[in-house]
Amino acid sequence: MSVIITACNEEKTLRSVLREAERLMPEEIIVVLNGCVDNSFRRARQCGRAIVVHCPDAVGHDVGRAIGSKLSQGDIMLFLDGDLPIPAPSLFPFVAAVDRGTDVALNDLNPLLPIFGKCDSVTHCKMFLNMALGREDLGAGSMTAVPHALSRRMLELIGPQALSVPPKAQAAAVLEKLRVENAGTVNVIKRNRIRKGNTGAGNNVEQMIIGDHAEALAEVLARGAADLLWKENGPDSRRILAAWRNGI
């Protein structure tokens, strides 16, 4: 197993994230520091098992995951963020799911969400993309959220570079008929670090994620998959969407 941690100025939490990752006894821990200007590098180096990749300039919100996966050797890749210390027992279900044959093990945030009408735009995008893929059972399950785990088969099939746009990578996995499942629930909503770019309606992170989903949906439409879904299951799909919209 490879644990891949991306971080941007996480000197206060990175040590705790690494400590919990070590408890899983992985083969390797890869830390990708994305434009850090604090002491994150020093914190990462204090973990003797960590392979530290230091990008002096920010390379993009999710590009760090692509870099880490490219360098990884494990059959299972567990992805974490440096600002969210998660106890090892809560991480284990994602690793175990891939060990049992799942290719994409997602964080199931659905039990934590309000009714559809009160969800934010990002959640609506996640739900709509999954429904367009014929996987409404995933609800808002998305590779946009950590923790999640991938199989080596998934990585070899779609390529590490695809992880720089998580929704597009998830869509590719479904279209390639890989096993994509919600594997466990970790409440990262309340614990998500408040930053200048991720607060307020229409913030930069929200717009980026919406754009990523639009790119993923464009890929689905280009392959004709969504068109086939709506033609064959149109009435039922519309019924499901109406149920979400009305909070049923």
Rank of each mutant, 00 (worst) to 15 (best):
I248S: 06
L163W: 00
L84F: 12
L241V: 01
G139V: 06
E232C: 11
F79V: 06
H124D: 00
S90M: 12
R193S: 01
L129K: 08
R43Y: 09
N198Y: 08
I29D: 00
G141R: 13
G202Y: 07
V122L: 11
R193Y: 06
H213P: 07
P85Y: 06
H61W: 09
H124K: 11
V95Y: 05
A222K: 15
D62F: 14
M127S: 01
V165M: 13
L24F: 02
V186H: 08
L80G: 02
R135N: 10
L157K: 14
D108S: 08
L109W: 04
A50N: 06
L78N: 03
N233P: 11
R42A: 01
M25K: 14
K70F: 04
R19C: 02
G68C: 10
V180G: 03
N246W: 02
C8R: 15
D120Y: 07
E232K: 15
A105H: 10
R238L: 13
N192T: 12
L112T: 10
A97M: 00
K126N: 04
D81S: 12
M154H: 08
D212R: 11
W244E: 00
L78T: 00
V180P: 07
M131F: 09
S121F: 01
V186T: 04
N39F: 06
G197C: 09
R65F: 14
A169H: 06
R15G: 12
S40V: 12
C8G: 12
G117E: 11
C47D: 02
A149P: 11
W230V: 13
G202R: 08
D75N: 11
Q73A: 00
G74K: 04
L18N: 03
T123I: 12
I51T: 14
D99P: 02
G35N: 15
E10H: 15
P26Q: 05
G101W: 06
C8W: 15
K168E: 01
I51W: 05
P114N: 04
N198F: 12
N107I: 05
E28C: 10
H148T: 04
V59K: 12
P93W: 10
P147N: 02
L109S: 09
V180N: 13
A171E: 02
N204P: 11
V186I: 13
V32H: 02
L78G: 10
P87W: 04
S237H: 10
R49E: 06
H124I: 14
R179T: 13
G141I: 09
P89W: 05
F41I: 07
A162R: 08
M127G: 07
N107A: 05
E219T: 13
I4E: 01
R179I: 13
L18M: 13
G141F: 05
G159K: 10
R23N: 05
L217S: 09
E176P: 06
G200P: 13
L229W: 13
Q73R: 07
T185C: 15
N192R: 15
G82W: 11
R238P: 02
Q170E: 01
P87N: 03
G202F: 08
L71P: 04
T102R: 06
P147D: 00
V165G: 11
A96V: 07
G211C: 15
E10N: 15
E206R: 14
A214P: 05
R100D: 01
V95T: 07
W244M: 00
D99E: 03
P167F: 13
D57K: 13
A222N: 12
A7L: 03
R153F: 02
A149C: 03
H148K: 07
C125I: 00
K118I: 00
A50K: 06
D120S: 15
